[in-house]
């Protein structure tokens, strides 16, 4: 786990995790000064482009992924006024419904929290060096790129 760092007063935590993401551990973000806390989670979906998926595996370039995630978060707290920004991305094997990513933002107001959260997930999808191998119901496996609508 990368250490929390202070950047402009915000508490910033980014980490890649081989262990399941536990939302309870994330929900204490911020303080009573924060009127808004957003939680975005990505979950393993049961199909991709109509093909039934049974589980998936994330392979990361671990050291670069930690660095890139930290850079995304630092850019984000530089652009919006936040008190807490935390992002966790899973690696390893995930079953259907498991959380693949979680982003928690605490801020004085909801607009900044929503915007910052959206920015972080879009940058993760664009930049984080991590790859997804899907395992299908028919037993085949395939490395998949971003969906056409997200590319």
């Amino acid at each position: 786990m990368s250490p929390a760092v202070d950047a402009g007063g915000a508490r910033v935590i980014g980490r890649m995790s081989e262990d399941p993401i536990r939302l309870d551990d994330l929900l204490g973000a911020g303080s009573s000064a924060d009127g808004a806390v957003t939680v975005f989670v990505g979950r393993v979906r049961d199909q991709n482009r109509g093909r039934p998926v049974v589980r998936l595996h994330y392979e990361a370039y671990g050291k670069m992924a930690e660095r890139e995630l930290a850079a995304i978060l630092e850019e984000t707290v530089g652009r919006w006024t936040l008190s807490h920004l935390e992002a966790v991305h899973r690696t390893g094997t995930l079953e259907l419904g498991e959380l693949s990513v979680a982003i928690v933002v605490a801020a004085p107001h909801r607009a900044t929290a929503y915007e910052a959260s959206r920015h972080v997930i879009e940058e993760i999808k664009r930049r984080l060096p991590i790859w997804k191998r899907e395992e299908y119901a028919d037993g085949e496996v395939e490395w998949v790129g971003p969906a056409p609508s997200e590319a």
């Binding site: 994330y58 370039y61 991305h89 664009r126 060096p129 991590i130 790859w131 998949v144 790129g145 971003p146």
Partner: peptide, 10 residues
Amino acid sequence: IALIPAVAGG
């Protein structure tokens, strides 16, 4: 050096 295939996080 690392070759980075199309990433697929999230």
